[in-house]
Design a protein around this nucleic acid. Structure first.
Lengths: 248, 248
DNA sequence: GACTGGCCTTGACCTAAATCAACCGGACGA
DNA sequence: TCGTCCGGTTGATTTAGGTCAAGGCCAGTC
């Protein structure tokens, strides 16, 4: 897919199914040309920090491949992950000079960057972009609110199940949905990162993973490979409404 | 202020200081005219529900006066507040037919509503609006992430202190900042609502309020009126970075 | 083949907050 | 004037998850 860096600009487009954010050349051809002039790619190794909270950040970017996280850290070292960025997700805030969070590559990562100034100018000139960005930001806000329910009210077991379900879903949609019902994936996060995501300690994460395995909700092969024999059973453990509640 | 319902459209405008989202007639006069045609007001009494999660919602709105909350509820009744809407805040999502959360008036409430369809049309026609909305949504996303840190990693005492600081700040900025250092305000939330905000039980909220009073961090007069003799002392209790970290 | 360092697991114990329960005090209606 | 209801406080007890500590597993490397 040649124009992946353009994902963030496109309206949905039927025959480019990548997470409903892909673009194809025939829509948005003119933006493509302009964007080509201001974009550039950056690669990071797993574990590398992209920017530190408070650092000057003179670009916005979208994830091309790999996974990045946003985390906040308190003075005494307590950490909370506040964003998990998968391919096609957007980082950076037009109109802000400094990063508000630590951005870290948890796997090898490629980002498509746009220098902030020209990007902002283009945003003014091309209303599409602001609208697309608004849509994406609203999605992220919804995800954040879901996450707040998880952090505030779910038990450790529910938290783990929810995270596994989220990853399974995201992963499955990338893989064009493995044989429905049975699916498997590799965790892109360490136990500690999972803990930071869920507001738990890594020991509790480990214990609950073991418990879910013992109860046959998941299978584990090595430390990272997770098998889900029955996705509905996993969903029952999340505490979420069963109907899945897809609001368009 | 006659054009309060227009807050959501404006770029900042020096001499209209209401929470940096106000508008004055001379900027945006044309949008004003168009907006006037599609807006209407609705009032709700304290405790009334504006919409239930899952209900059809054919308008977007901004809060004119009073306070509303967004909450999520799990099947077994566990509740988590995921949004606190103060005057000038925006509710509703262009491009979505159903409400994703319960919206409730916690005080008497006036909202300025725009029917969704014409509003969306106007958004396409008037690029300003999408940009303003994007800016507001990004602010909300930041607030949500701050909130996630609170829910995931703060102690009960830190949570309470943080909430009080948030309300004090918002309140103070409305009142053009009372004599700096000493300030006082009325809690717009019951103990139970505070608990839903903070991911605690109402008993814990009550206990920690008493503890903060005992330790002279706050004063209480009746159940709702809070006095803050030393705002910095309150801030120390929040666990947040002391520098306040204002990122533009 | 031993050695190291990450990452993970498991056990024993502790504590912050939840739960359960009693009670207070003001508003309000009979 | 008396209930009683609602929001709030406080105490006793329980418990989920945190903390501390001891290993296990495995990949890389000397």
């Amino acid at each position: 897919m040649a124009h992946q860096d353009l994902q963030l600009l496109s309206h949905d487009c039927g025959d480019c199914p990548i997470r409903h954010r892909a673009v194809c050349a025939r829509c948005e051809a003119d933006e493509l040309a302009r964007l080509e002039q201001i974009k550039y790619y950056r690669s990071y190794q797993a574990g590398q920090t992209v920017v530190w909270s408070g650092d000057r950040m003179d670009f916005v970017a979208s994830v091309v491949s790999g996974i990045a996280t946003l985390t906040q850290t308190m003075e005494d070292g307590r950490r909370q992950m506040v964003g998990l960025l998968l391919p096609s997700d957007f980082v950076g805030r037009p109109g802000r000079a400094q990063a508000a969070y630590d951005v870290t590559a948890t796997t090898d990562l490629v980002m498509c960057c746009f220098r902030k100034k020209p990007f902002e100018e283009m945003m003014v000139a091309t209303p599409h972009i602001a609208q697309r960005l608004l849509e994406m930001t609203l999605d992220e806000l919804d995800a954040a609110r879901e996450w707040m329910l998880l952090l505030g009210r779910k038990t450790a077991r529910e938290k783990i199940a929810s995270l596994l379900a989220i990853i399974a879903r995201r992963d499955a949609s990338l893989k064009l949905r493995a044989a429905k019902g049975k699916l498997a994936f590799d965790l892109p996060l360490t136990r500690e990162e999972m803990a930071d995501y869920l507001g738990l300690t890594l020991e509790t994460v480990s214990r609950q993973m073991s418990a879910l395995k013992r109860d046959m909700v998941i299978g584990l092969e090595g430390k990272r490979h997770v098998m889900v024999p029955d996705f509905d059973k996993l969903l029952e453990e999340t505490g979420d409404d069963s109907d899945g509640g897809f609001l368009v």
